[in-house]
Structure formats: C-alpha cells, structure tokens
Nucleic acid binder design. Structure first.
Lengths: 284, 284
DNA sequence: CGATAGCTTGAGCCCTATCAACAGCTGTGG
DNA sequence: CCACAGCTGTTGATAGGGCTCAAGCTATCG
C-alpha cells in the first residue's frame, strides 16, 4: 500500500520538472524506504545529526526551525512530495532542526538510492538539481518577504505559497487545506509576534480572503489574496519547457474533497492506521 | 598575470573545503575564462538572462538584488573567491539580478568547465556541492537574522559575516576592508530604511566597535561586534575534517596592508588598469 | 565651481512588540 | 462525569522601534 504511495508522490514531483523515461520510473519504483509517523511539533532531524537517509514527506508539513533563547524562526516549510533534506545526501550534517508542523508521515530514503539514481539517469540527476534550485529560490524569496514587506503581506504571501505548492502536487484542489500549525508557528515563519499574527489573520478573515477554523484554511478569494501578498509564483516554477498556465481563480467547485492527507482523514493508501509516533531509528 | 590570479582565488577556495590532488590542481589551472570589469552598482546578470558561464568574483563585491516598486532587497553578498551563480551551470536561468556593489572584477568561466571538472574529479565535484551548500546555509542564516533580530543586531551581523568571509580567503587580515557600498546598500541588505541604517552605523561607531570612513571599514573590536551580532560562524564552515580554530581577536597588527583588492589599490596582478566597464558579451 | 550622490539630523507618526487578562478547547485523571 | 491543567486563540492598553518626510551638510567629480 504505502510502497506505491511513496513512489507516486516522489515520481510525480520529479515528473513535474523533467521528462522521465520508463526506465527512470522503473528505477524510482524500486525506491527503498522506511515509514515514520510523527506527532505534531516533533523533531525529525536535530542540528548536527548525521543521517544516512533523506526524508520524503508524504503527509502533513515539515519545517526547518531555529529555536533558541530570544529566537524562534521557521526558515522554510515543506509540503507532501518535498524532500527537505535532499542536500544532505551530498553532505550529511544537518545545520538546523527539521521538525513537523502537525502530524506528519515521512518516507526515509537512503542516501545511496539518490546517489545511484543520479548516476544511472541523467534525467533524475537533473531533477534532483532542480529540486535543490527550487528550494534555494524559495529561500531567496522568503528573504525578500522578511526584508521588505509588512506583516500583512508576509502572512498573505505565506498562505499563497502553501496553497500554490499544495496544488502543484494535486492537493488543496478546492483551495482548502489542513492547517495543523498554530498561529505561533505562523508568527515564527513570518517574523512577527504571535499576538500580531492573530490580528493579521483576523484582517484576512475580515477582508474575506480566507477562513481558518478547526484546523482548516480555506482560501475564499485567491485573486484577492495574491494581490495583497504581491504573490508571483514564478519563483517556484522549475519545470523545464513552457511555464505552467496561470492558476485559475476560484470557479465552480469540482465534486471532490479537499485534503492534504489529513484534512479529509488519512489518505486511502494509509487506511485508518492510528497516528502513532514510531520514531524511525537510523541504521548507522 | 590574471590567469594565475583567477586560478589561485578559485583553487584556494575549493581547497579550503576539500583535499585537492595534484591532478585536480592541474585541471583547475587550465580553467578557461574571460575577464570583465564592472563599475559600481552595475548589473552583471539580469533576471531571466540565459548564461553559459559562471561568475568567479576576483575583486570587489557582488550581490543578488531584487528591485521593484516599493522593494529594494539585497538577498546575499559575495566576496572575492565566490561564484554567486554557480548553480546556473545546472539550470542556466537566473532568477534575480546579480549586480556589483562597488567596482568589481570578474572571471567568467564556461559552464562546460564545471561540468567536465565535476565528471573528472570526485573531489572537485564534492567541493562544488559544498559551495552550493554553504550558499544555502548563508541564505538560511540571513532569514534568521531578518526574521528575529532587531536592526542593530542585523547590521552588526552583516559586518561580522563580511569580515569573516573576507578573512577566510586571506583578505581583511587586520580587520579592515574596503566598503565601496553605500549606507543604502546596507539598508537594503538588512531590511531597514537608509535613514535608520545611518543611525545604526553611528551606534556601532559610538560603541567603538567599528569605524567606517572614506570607503573603508575597520572593525576595532571584533569580540564586541560578534557579541552584539550574536554571530556564530559555524554556519559558514563547510570544510571537511576538523573545524577551523576560532578567529583570534585583534592582537598586535601584522606588518601588512589591508586590502580586499581595492582598499590598497588594484591588485598587483592587475597593475593600474583603469576601471573601465567592459561588459563581457556571452558567446551564446 | 556647480552638480550630484551620499551622509546626517530632527520631528512626528505608524506599525508592531510587550504585557496582561480572559475565553475556548482538549486531554487527563479522579 | 466532572474538575482541572495546559495550550491556543482573542482582546485591550501601552510603549518603543523604525519609517517617512524634510532639510541641511559633505564629498566627490566633471
């Protein structure tokens, strides 16, 4: 069950950037992995951990986070299909803490798989490079946000980015997604105080741009939200060939349920498996 | 003359991270390149430029900069020995604008050289990966700064980072370096207004942490500056093997001149060549 | 020598942080 | 089933950091 699920998430993600051959897909299908379940706000990788595998996020959210006295900053956020620590297959030492935002399901994939895949297939090698580039582009964009936009714009931009990235992997089709993270997390990501984050969310609600209740965010006015956020998804597009068509604003709703893997319950492939925390033990 | 200079800058940089064999050094010595001179605040790469070469900075400073209506943000700053657009050899499209901060001398190195070098030498391939990682680490660190520290800390941190990185490539030995950038540049890097940047610099001067006059910055109290900045250079260390010893604070001055390539006039290898802007024309 | 770019200084105001209190929800244990 | 604790969200009051506007000053360069 999970085998196909993990393979699909990852293959889809790579295929969204480069053309994959049947041989590439065959190789990806043989991807070895171990599944780990994490509860909310649980560390996945500690600063200075030496790992011999990468984390493929299957469900939920992960983030790099720097916590210290007088510092709590979320550096970047990842959605299903992402591999937050992909770069560690080149240099295994993590530099910051990777932790979950809400419950998360992760497939741990050995570094050796990526090394072999990159050697065997130019397309996969290229896709991995592009994955890294997209990650860096996201960081750069976040610097622009933190450095030169006010808090309303920052918060709106974060919601835009999450929405866009979820939709890029087939989630949040109806502009609704699970938000297991807290307003303090939002504040830590946007570099504002939790109290202020709350007030900004209220502004967004009052402007009818989004709703956020019972751990679900619904973007009710995508166009309006991107306007407030000055959001231009260009920096996220790393597919080769022609760019994606612009995202259609909210139209008539398709007859499908919103889900980010949790919004509408566990993914079918997971059945009703309880969300236990089975901390995966590295074999090294 | 320049041949040796460009080769040395780059080889030193790589050697600071990995062990290079004689064969590696031989290969690096054959590095093909074209020299470009740029005047202050001159664009080097425009957003969406398709380049077939990378920029090895020889003298001066470069930065990625996002400029627009109501946005002027410097995303990252580079010192001699850096290759700001190294990642473009994987995907050639630049995503932001690369421009000079003060006059700069650049060696343009064809992408093909990096591709070949990476294929031929595992050590060089590894060094290039580490270069990329260091770059990403720097971005992450800058997010922490912008998101969770006040302006005094940010500005102090920027000076610390520049000083540290210059010293890592053998410049600013006596904690003095050329600062051809303006206070507005400083503001754009730290996400504050130019007026406020000015006041912060005055605070640093008043605290006797540094002097900044006639385009030269002198750090007069390294320990004090790092304290104010909460600067921990750990995130910049990507050398393999044991970490570098901690940087000694200011002691008795060695009998050598401070230079970043411009502080003490043009580098010997460049002679008194005028700082003309000979925009290099890509051959593609 | 005038022009231009950069630096400096002051005043007023707005955005955001901080502190504090309370409400709502969730999970826990008796 | 209820009492309780703890976390999260909400609201108000107050203070301060940083922005904006505006003007004067300085240095550099043609």
């Amino acid at each position: 069950m999970l085998q196909g699920f993990a393979y699909t998430r990852f293959a889809d993600h790579l295929a969204s950037m480069v053309e994959l051959s049947m041989a590439d897909l065959d190789h990806l299908e043989k991807m070895p992995f171990t599944i780990g379940h994490f509860s909310s706000h649980h560390p996945v990788r500690q600063k200075r951990d030496q790992a011999d595998c990468c984390c493929l996020l299957l469900q939920g959210y992960l983030c790099w986070r720097e916590v210290g006295t007088d510092v709590d900053q979320i550096i970047s956020i990842y959605v299903p299909g992402d591999v937050p620590d992909l770069s560690t297959y080149a240099s295994p030492a993590a530099r910051v803490n990777l932790s979950s935002l809400g419950p998360a399901v992760i497939a741990f994939i050995p570094h050796s798989f990526f090394r072999d895949a990159a050697l065997l297939s130019p397309a996969i090698s290229r896709a991995l490079s592009l994955l890294n580039l997209a990650d860096t582009a996201s960081l750069r964009n976040w610097i622009i946000n933190l450095g030169s936009r006010d808090s309303l714009t920052r918060v709106a931009h974060l919601f835009c980015e999450i929405t866009f990235r979820l939709r890029a992997v087939g989630l949040a089709r109806d502009f609704a997604f699970a938000s297991p993270f807290t307003q303090s997390d939002l504040a830590a990501a946007c570099g504002i105080s939790p109290v202020h984050a709350n007030r900004i969310v209220q502004v967004l609600r009052r402007k009818n741009l989004l709703h956020w209740q019972s751990k679900t965010v619904t973007v009710t006015d995508w166009q309006g939200l991107t306007d407030v956020a000055q959001f231009d998804p260009d920096y996220l597009n790393f597919r080769e060939g022609p760019p994606l068509p612009p995202m259609r604003p909210l139209g008539p709703r398709p007859a499908e349920a919103a889900h980010t893997g949790f919004a509408a319950g566990p993914h079918p492939a997971l059945g009703s498996r309880p969300q236990t925390v089975t901390r995966w033990a590295p074999s090294g």
